[in-house]
Amino acid sequence: MVGIVIVSHSRLLAQGVLDATKIMADGCPVAAAGGTDDGGYGTSYEQIRSAVDAVYSADGVVVLVDMGSAVMTAEMVIEDMGYDNILLLDCPIAEGAVAASLSSLCGDDLETVKNQALSSKTEAKW
């Protein structure tokens, strides 16, 4: 299954998005990296790296980020790991994570999971 990583400045926000994926896609490998190492507001290279490691498999990983340093720090982790099947996605983290985790749990490949998550960016809510 494709792994999902949620990166946020807030520990609670990242954990909350992870919890939201469990409602529809319990069993999909999802990891959260939220806040700094001392529990503050920000992003942590080490936490993001551990989260990617925790859900990585040959099927690949999609990484969803909130903003700013989350984008740049996740980019650095992905570049340093050097795998081409870890993708950073530009989409809303809550809606994107729900769509991606459901797609992954259904056995979709990395490309399909990516597209499912990205569709959350343009899909109207009503």
Binding site: T36, G40, G42, T43, Y45, S69, M76
Partner: peptide, 15 residues
């Protein structure tokens, strides 16, 4: 700096 800063200055000054 990348590890310890926590904000955008980390990846930027770190780089």
């Amino acid at each position: 700096l990348v590890s310890a800063v926590g904000g955008s200055a980390g990846p930027l000054y770190g780089t």
